[in-house]
Amino acid sequence: MKPALLAAVVLAGTLGTLPSHAGPTQTAVLETYAAQAKVAEPGFAGFSVERGKALFLGRFTTGKPDTPSCTTCHTTDPRKEGQTRAGKVIGPMALSAKPDRYGVLAEAEKWFARNCDSVLGRACTPREKGDFISFMVSQ
């Protein structure tokens, strides 16, 4: 495991000390999800880069058949460009490779709503969203 990733796992949960490329806008989005997660899960103890990575790489059978995984469109390497099923290029998901990611809550919400439904067949929880973004800002 890369040192950065290791550090992220260790430090995950304490916002502000995230070993990440997160700027103020990304931190604000993460704080919003953290606040929502505390309400949704009483035992919420912070986001996890590891869980975010697992969500990203995982394969699911509960969603739509053409989209079993986030990697269907985003590829397994977050720093690489992805491609939609309609052929259009998707910019990299890693914040280091595309610094304007995860800075606008409404944008993130829109895509979580769509993509989680397509892949998982349900909405993502605030914790899953925070995990996912934590993983991506660490990349």
Partner: peptide, 10 residues
């Protein structure tokens, strides 16, 4: 749009 060609595009 929620089932847009096998995807959610709502």
């Amino acid at each position: 749009l929620t089932d847009h060609f096998g995807e959610n595009a709502e």
